[in-house]
Nucleic acid binder design. Structure first.
Length: 847
RNA sequence: GCCCCUGUAGCCCAACCGGCAGAGGCAAACGACUUAAAAUCGUUCAAGUCAGGGUUCGAAUCCCUGCAGGGGCACCA
């Protein structure tokens, strides 16, 4: 297949691959076993895959990049933990079971075997001793343990609420799993369903999840940080209590604009909230009927319709009234679906003059609008503007009733009693003071993020370790009873029907109440698979320990993960959950750190002709075909060389064939080296040595800043220089040539491990190049003998001087002034300024 | 609507703190090899950095405006 192609000279990747796979299997160079290894440690982790069958181009990119980093740190003298496992619970296995009658367990583990083989062929330097599968009872036992710990702390709880339901997958979805109103997995429109479900209380950690993002600044992609910030969505403002006529309890609302409280002319409650139901119950029969109609209509509308900001406002008046706490005005209470039941208090004060949504609503239902901020007035920075007497200019342009545009900018308060004359920021602070003094409000914060819904009505997941007593009590399973193992699928109907298939496993679901021995049932639901992946990185430390989830002492040694590598598709879901669980484990005292992943690299996607590959688009490039055609090393190299790792790779723009040619070229160098190992480098050709050492000096920084494409380019340069030295210069026997080729092998180990091993062996060394250490550049070889100093006159280059690298500024200036070119150019001009930056540039400014 | 990122040869991409725009690759052209082509090897070619303005002795790099592309959040009070 490749005997005579790329190189025409016998570079046969298929032969090399087969040869080294066998050697690696024997040598196991990447197992991390010695607990007393004195070397510094690095934990390099690739996001573990779902066992989907074959590896695809996306895997190939991710594992190539992660492996560069793992191999790099080994070369730098670190002991590297680089494990792999499988995120092996989840819907595809179950769907395959339903569709094709396969056992999900069998399907899963067969796929894992296939992928494992492919990963080994791909030369990923994983520690194969530490493989884990989340679908092993030995793993999910600890998932159940984690659940119980969360339950003990009140962080796992059950509540009835409107949840996202996927009618296709017949299961609930977490908020994070709904995209544009659709199930992120199957694309079906999600619908709302009221169900009692298990939640993890991630909102308790919202502040810390947001604030700690600051620690990740610089080591996480700023894109991911901002996505998480957006997702958590903290707003600051105030809670304000409104007295309701005919109700003992006040109605509390959250607002980010307490300064506009004097402009609150009505209130709105979410129609699907308990509050609306209660208020309506105290109203007239006519209102009750109208409300019932409205509620039905709201619940029929899909999430998509409801989220369309441009859609016309709807609502019903409840014929109930509240009292504005600052001016004692009676304000009507409406129900409208632009207010969400599960944000804030499910109710708002409406300030139509200064909020577009409220204004739209007021215009439609002819509710009063009162301007309380003169947005035309100048705002003078931090100093409060206190001049209530100043005239309010240009009132008509300020009239939202006329323009239909709410005034949400800053300005000077008017019509607001004690706030009059203040600017927005000062008015907000002042209003909060007033409210707090009167006990009618307080400063408050709200979050966009909701609690994490973790129950799923599916079979292939971790059973929730809770027993339901006949009287409805929830009894956690005792820790020593774990794991609650999934029943066999034989005879079980896995068809989705809205309730968990586990409910149909009579032998399994029926149990006894551990308290009194009475009949009881197990919880029929399984956990979201994101629970598994939120702590799996700790399980790698001792994956077979059946006495604890992970060993805190090992965690102390290895964790947090030094470098995490994976796709940006998990920017919110997985990474947020893992951060959350890590903080919970910290609070419980199991770990001493609060962030799981110290650094994150998001690789881009592999595209074809500008769009994601898919069978239906007909632009699918099969990894197996590419490997067959060009070999593992060429594909890995292509992935690394295509561009910055976080950019998408368009397979139409890259050249695996070019990579293959280059590897053959590099490989041939090794055969042309005629000196023996151990020759004295110092006698070698100086120019080539300088190239080699420049590379040795620069490569580490480039790898550490993820400029893999540049490192590859630098290896290419070194290969080109070495080729030239062999053919037309020093010759294959020169020690500098051996030094250069050995350096190429060390560099290629990161990107093309098979070729690197083969070269290393040809050069006369025993395996493995992956365990060889990087060489230090010799400083004296890094200083150039001469450098070019540019002379600029008024920004234009007029002369280039060849000078010693340690020429002084005075020398350079003198040299520049002595140059005929310079003299000619400045003749008759007055020199205003001369700037010298030794040894690079002399810049002369004239008048 | 709010927020973020990116625009450099035909294409993918380099360029440290602002200091000679070019490292590498792809494509192309030419040459060698070949009866010829492919493959292979060698040589060569290329833009003044999206547009406009500003700061500076000096701008791809910093600032402002605009255009183009990509992404995140979005009836979140």
């Amino acid at each position: 297949m490749s005997e005579q192609d790329a190189a025409g000279n016998g570079y046969d990747f298929a032969r090399i691959q087969a040869k080294w796979q066998a050697i690696w299997d024997e040598l196991e160079p990447f197992a991390t076993r010695d607990p007393d290894d004195p070397r510094p440690r690095k934990y390099i982790l690739d996001m573990f895959p779902y066992p989907s069958g074959d590896l695809h181009m996306g895997h190939a990119e991710a594992y190539a990049l992660g492996d560069v980093i793992a191999r790099y740190w080994r070369q730098q003298g670190f002991t590297v933990l680089h494990p792999i496992g499988w995120d092996s619970f989840g819907l595809p296995a179950e769907n395959a079971a339903i569709k094709r009658g396969l056992d999900p367990k069998k399907w899963t583990y067969e796929n894992i075997e296939q992928q494992k083989k492919a990963m080994k062929q791909y030369a990923a330097s994983f520690d194969w001793d530490r493989v884990l599968h989340t679908s092993d009872p030995g793993f999910y036992k600890w998932n159940q343990w984690l659940f119980l710990k969360m339950y003990e702390r009140g962080l796992a709880y059950r509540k009835a609420s409107w949840v996202n339901w996927c009618p296709q997958d017949q299961t609930v979805l977490a908020n994070e799993q709904v995209e544009d109103g659709r199930c992120e997995r199957c694309g079906a429109f999600a619908v709302k369903k009221k169900l009692t479900q298990w939640y993890f209380k991630i909102t308790d950690y919202a502040d810390r999840l947001l604030d700690d993002l600051g620690q990740l600044e610089g080591t996480w992609p700023s894109k991911v940080i901002s996505m998480q910030r957006n997702w958590i969505g903290r707003s600051t403002g105030a809670d304000v209590d409104f007295v309701i006529e005919g109700r003992d309890e006040p109605l509390t609302v959250f607002t980010t604009r307490p300064d506009t409280l004097f402009g609150a002319t009505f209130m709105v409650v979410a129609p699907d909230s308990d509050l609306a139901a209660e208020l309506v119950a105290g109203s007239t029969p006519e209102v009750q009927a109208a409300f019932a109609d409205y509620l039905t209509q709201v619940q029929k509308s899909t999430e998509i319709e409801r989220q369309d900001a441009g859609r016309e406002k709807t609502g019903v008046f409840l014929d109930r009234w509240a009292i504005n706490p600052v001016n004692d005005e009676r304000v009507p209470i409406w129900a409208a679906d632009y207010v969400l039941a599960d944000y804030g208090h499910g109710a708002i004060m409406a300030v139509p003059a200064h909020d577009q949504r409220d204004l739209d609503f007021a215009l439609k239902f002819e509710l009063p609008v009162r301007v309380v901020v003169d947005t035309n007035a100048p705002v003078t920075g931090a100093i409060p503007v206190v001049d209530p007497e100043a005239p309010i200019d240009d009132i008509p342009s300020l009239d939202p009733l006329a323009t239909g545009v709410a005034l949400n900018g800053d300005g000077r308060m008017i019509n607001s009693g004690p706030l009059d004359g203040l600017s927005k920021t000062h008015a907000i602070a002042r209003m909060i003071e007033i409210l707090e003094k009167d006990g009618r409000g307080r400063s408050a914060r709200n979050f966009r993020i909701r609690d994490w819904l973790i129950s799923r009505q599916r079979f292939w997941g971790t059973p929730i370790p809770i027993i339901h007593a006949e009287n409805g009590d929830l009894i956690p399973v005792a820790e020593d009873q774990l794991p609650i193992v999934l029943p066999e699928t034989e005879g079980l109907d896995l068809m989705p029907k809205g309730t968990s298939p586990l409910g149909g496993a009579a032998d399994w679901i029926n149990t006894t109440n551990p308290v009194d021995g009475s009949p009881a049932k197990r919880d029929p639901d399984t956990m979201d698979t994101f629970v598994d992946s939120s702590w799996y990185f700790l399980r790698f430390l001792n994956p077979n320990d059946d006495t604890q989830a992970f060993d805190p002492a090992e965690a102390e040694k290895w964790a947090p993960v030094d470098q995490y590598v994976g796709g940006v598709t998990h920017a919110i879901l997985h990474l947020l959950y893992a951060r959350f669980i890590t903080k919970v484990l910290y609070d419980m005292g199991y770990v001493s750190f609060t962030e799981p992943f110290s650094a994150l690299l998001n690789q881009g996607m592999v595209l074809m002709d500008g769009s994601a590959m898919s069978k239906s688009k007909g632009n699918l490039v099969r990894l197996s075909d590419q490997l067959q055609e060009h070999g593992v090393d060429a594909i890995r190299l292509t992935m690394s060389f295509a561009g910055p790792p976080e950019d998408d790779i368009d397979w139409a723009d890259v050249s695996p064939h070019g990579a293959e040619k280059f590897l053959a070229r590099a490989w041939r160098l090794a055969g042309d080296v005629t000196s023996e190992p151990g020759v004295d480098w110092s006698k070698g050709d100086r120019a080539l040595r300088r190239e080699t050492h420049r590379f040795l000096a620069d490569a580490p920084g480039l790898v550490e800043s993820f400029k893999f494409n540049v490192v590859v380019a630098r290896i290419m340069e070194l290969v080109n220089a070495t080729r030239k030295a062999i053919d037309t210069g020093a010759g294959g026997g020169d020690p500098a040539v051996r030094e250069a080729v050995e350096t190429v092998a060390l560099g290629l180990n990161l990107f093309a491990p098979y070729t690197a091993e083969e070269m290393w062996e040809t050069l006369g060394y025993p395996p493995s190049v992956a365990l060889a250490t990087w060489r230090k550049a010799e400083p004296e070889l890094l200083v150039a003998e001469s450098v070019v100093c540019v002379v600029q006159i008024d920004g234009k280059i007029r002369e280039k001087l060849t000078v010693s690298p340690d020429a002084t500024e005075a020398e350079l200036e003198a040299l520049a002034m002595a140059s005929p070119n310079v003299q000619r150019t400045i003749a008759g001009r007055e020199i205003v300024r001369t700037i010298v930056r030794a040894p690079k540039i002399v810049s002369i400014a004239t008048k």
